[in-house]
Design a protein around this nucleic acid. Sequence first.
DNA 1: CATGCTCTCAATGTATACATTGAGTGTTCC
DNA 2: GGAACACTCAATGTATACATTGAGAGCATG
Lengths: 243, 243
Amino acid sequence: MDAAVQRATALTSADRAFETLRTQIVEGELAPGAPLAEVEQATRLGVSRTPVREAFARLIAAGLAIERGPRSLVVSHIDAGDVTALFDLRRALDEQAARLAAARAAADPVTARDFADLADRFRAVTPSTLAADDPQRHGYYALVAEFDAALDAALTRSPYLAAAIASTRVHLARVRRLARDDDARLAASAAEHGAIARAIADGDGERAAAATRLHLHEALTSIHRHLPPAAPSSTAAPTKEHA
Amino acid sequence: MDAAVQRATALTSADRAFETLRTQIVEGELAPGAPLAEVEQATRLGVSRTPVREAFARLIAAGLAIERGPRSLVVSHIDAGDVTALFDLRRALDEQAARLAAARAAADPVTARDFADLADRFRAVTPSTLAADDPQRHGYYALVAEFDAALDAALTRSPYLAAAIASTRVHLARVRRLARDDDARLAASAAEHGAIARAIADGDGERAAAATRLHLHEALTSIHRHLPPAAPSSTAAPTKEHA
DNA sequence: CATGCTCTCAATGTATACATTGAGTGTTCC
DNA sequence: GGAACACTCAATGTATACATTGAGAGCATG
């Protein structure tokens, strides 16, 4: 009964500091390259250095901050080259996830119905429904979030893969903010998601993987069209996560 | 120029604490399920709680420790179900890595030669060379480490993928310790590695991916043969990484 | 005037003191 | 005798004091 209350208060200062910093980095409030100093952030967030240190450690683990030099932490950069690199990972993860989800749907009617339902809802997305009083397209992104949640639910047996996918999503959120999709792309993306969901619902792993690959190719192409084209090989080592 | 010297002295207490704990967990010295208490480990490692806290945070991020309850940290478990889940991720990552490495080898003669060289050395591995005064098979595992390093070198343009692969290797080290390979398996593994390296050297991405898939299937099968077969679905949520 | 050296200082790395919370135990009451 | 309550205590969460190190400014010298 008091579980909900307890959970609300069980968030530590370190949790809040991490959440705040993560959000501000993803939203661009803390710009790439911005220095992250313990005392400064501690003052700003109204906590001591200890939880800030822990938050910084988590930011590094998530790839949102990188150590520049021995005593300098900065918000990690993200540019066109990074997006390509990120999609190199995403393709590997999402195709496999689609295969496994399809396998699960073939054995589990509940999963199959969930994805069939999602497929229908993605197909219902049209440029006209998109434009309906939703300048930020929250409705569409909420649907994508539901798709992600369904994928997670289908991957309970593959927690390592699920965790890796989760770790890419925060980076994708940053990319999404860099290159806002236009309505045409969003409508196409909906159709692609629908195709993936339908293939999963049908239990057809290879089709789901193929649909995923197609979707990622289109998404990456669209992003690069909207992004300043950084020189392909000049930016050498963009991000470096845990050792 | 002076980077190497600087790096040697730049190791902090937190780094050493993490390295020590990581090694002891991988080696089995700290058994799965063992509680990780700050004061106890601080005393044992001869440092204060602060660096230990940081080390714990990194262990959690690496998936070597999980929070059991609000104030209880334990060494993460790893069993047959986990191995399957880990390989679900590994297959995705390693196949993609093989494809990308092959693409790089096709464009970069140095990469191609490195893998061609590795392929020859893997093919030179036979049961007789394995048995030569090396009960722990350090020589063979060193060769595998060289293969991994070559893969990393080929993936400089895909740092996200490289980081994800790196994060799987520590878990694989744990698995390797659980189920020591016999000589026959090691010789077969060498042949499989050789096939992968040769395909990469030839710039044939799909062949490299196929060889990788085959290798992982054989490796997983071998591991399960040597492991107590945990019930498939009883062990629910093994590891949970960063949010 | 440029270059190099030193000194200061600010930031991180570490240790420790204080706050808080949850579990376990012992006692008391029904 | 059993159950519930309160208390102790130990562990984590947080804050802060101390140590250390690297960077930058300022000065001196060639």
